[in-house]
Design a protein around this nucleic acid. Structure first.
Length: 464
RNA sequence: UCCUCGAUAGCUCAACGGUAGAGCAUCCGGCUGUUAACCGGAGGGUUGUUGGUUCGAAUCCUACUCGGGGAGCCA
């Protein structure tokens, strides 16, 4: 007898109709009547469940099967029959149902509505729900789509280090990596912790960005990208921040900020198209139960030019809007979340690139524009999520870069290797960072980052 | 870190100073095609922790813990 999974049946039910097959999976719902019963079985291979029909006359253990609990694992043998008049296209008429793994009645995941907050506390069980199964399948597809997008274009995937000695990027608070004794660390004569006795002989941290290392490879292999975990020890308590998250950072050489934006736009459109095509059931589910306008919005975006606006113009637009913002709009200060949302959701009603930010609110490595006030930075704002991508053209002129490092009071000796990239054959190059979870949020409509990462790590929370 | 809201049955919630309830889930029974089925019955609670006010506290007040939403920081 052939062992099959539901995915095969959905894709090619015709070749199994009338055949004797074996399925295995977990009971989502089980209800019996006097002489027959129905079981909704999910085998993990597909979003959909398959209905198992079992009859008292056909099953020696009918009375036991009728009392199998939700969540129990079973193996079912029977015949696949088409049911064109019913809700589902086909079902399995069972000849034999055996228990593979019992599930007692206190199983937390019951066929009813649970809140996402409750399921977060059941992170080990929540992938068994429709919602989270859909989220994590889409997450997997998205990761694959990202790789395919870049690989098809000849980008080289670079594994930048997880442990880094550089804390010069300034992207946020860092987690220290140390093997020193926490109670009695090695001390120097001046009474400070002596990191020269630490594992690496110096202070080390978990990476907050692979960008600087990605630049190294862009200036050798031209078009590269990173895709890996990133760590920020920020005390952020929002639905959009996690201490451990995944980031994608492409870096392209002989390229300017416009090339950078073209790349970002093409990538976003590519992965949306990919997921809409590969996960229709999941996307339909999100559209129905998570975010009613999701599917239409995504389909529209694929065929729409992303808007572009300069920071200075954006500030004007916000000032002209007469919208009662909680924070004032002022040239020179960063856009607040409310400002970003207004721009993308009200003014442009589409993803929008905001470019040429004041240099004083941006990182040292961004390329200075000729006006002496702004840098060639770009943020991609999208409705619902806010900032999805942050990127820039990098400062390739050694003197300008050194000057900026000095102005910002940074230690240039720690960046010696980064500066040598400019000294030896430096060329214009650009790149951006994409928060992978934010992309998953954007595509699923889920509005909390803790629900799109399998085991979220946030401030004061590291269960599982 | 700041602001704000919340914590009651396994889950989702009600009761808002006077005997803690409902729906779903569970258990028992009924039902010949159900679709998170339906109908009848049963069990299930030191109301997050702590201290106080009161004749009496789930309810009012202290503190704490945990969680939601918003903000800052950012991806």
């Amino acid at each position: 007898m052939e062992q099959v999974v539901v995915r095969q049946l959905i894709r090619d039910s015709g070749s199994y109709t009338g055949k004797d097959i074996e399925l295995s999976g977990w009971i989502r719902n089980n209800r019996d009547q006097k002489s027959f019963g129905f079981m909704a079985l999910n085998d993990g291979s597909h979003f959909s469940t398959i209905q198992i029909v079992y009859e008292k006359a056909a099953l020696s253990n009918y009375d036991q099967v009728a009392h199998y609990h939700v969540g129990a694992a079973v193996i079912v043998r029977g015949t696949l029959v088409e049911t064109p008049q019913a809700k589902q296209p086909f079902e399995l008429k069972a000849r034999e149902i055996t228990m593979a793994g019992d599930c007692p009645e206190d199983y937390p995941i019951q066929p009813k509505r649970h809140t996402r907050e409750f399921l977060r506390e059941q992170a080990h069980l929540r992938p068994r729900t429709n919602l989270f199964a859909a989220v994590f399948r889409v997450r997997s597809l998205l990761a694959y789509a990202i790789h395919q997008f870049f690989q098809d274009r000849g980008f080289v995937y670079v594994h930048t280090p997880i442990i880094t000695a550089s804390d010069a990027e300034g992207a946020g608070e860092m987690f220290r990596v140390s093997t020193l004794d926490a109670k009695e660390p090695a001390m120097s004569e001046s009474g400070e912790v002596d990191f020269s006795q630490d594992f690496f002989g110096r202070r080390t941290n978990l990476t907050v960005s692979g960008q600087l290392e990605a630049e190294v490879f862009a200036l050798a292999l031209r078009d590269v990208y990173t895709f890996g975990p990133t760590f920020r020890a920020e005390n952020s308590n929002t639905a959009r921040h996690a201490a451990e998250f995944w980031m994608i950072e492409p870096e392209i050489a002989f390229a300017d900020i416009n090339d950078d934006m073209r790349l970002a736009e093409a990538m976003v459109k590519y992965v949306i198209k990919y997921v809409l095509q590969k996960a229709p059931e999941e996307m339909k589910f999100f559209n129905e139960f998570v975010d009613k306008g999701l599917q239409e919005r995504l389909e529209k975006i694929v065929n729409q030019e992303f808007a572009r606006v300069s920071y200075s113009r954006a500030v004007e637009l916000l000032k002209e809007s007469k919208e009662p913002f909680d924070y004032p709009v002022e040239w020179g200060s960063d856009l607040q979340t409310e400002h970003e949302r207004y721009l993308t959701e009200k003014v442009f009603q589409s993803p929008v690139f905001v470019i040429d930010y004041p240099k004083d609110i941006k990182a040292f490595y961004m390329r200075q524009n000729d006006d002496g006030k702004t840098v060639a930075a770009m943020d991609l704002l999208v409705p619902g999520v806010g900032e999805l991508i942050g990127g820039s053209q990098r400062e390739e002129r050694l003197d300008k870069l050194e000057q900026r490092i000095a102005e910002m009071g940074m230690d240039k000796s720690e960046l010696w290797w980064y500066l040598e990239l400019r000294k030896y054959g430096g060329v214009p190059h650009a790149g951006f960072g994409l928060g992978f979870e934010r992309l998953v949020m954007y595509l699923t409509g889920i509005n909390n980052i803790r629900d799109v990462i399998p085991f979220p790590r946030t401030v004061k929370s590291c269960e599982f």
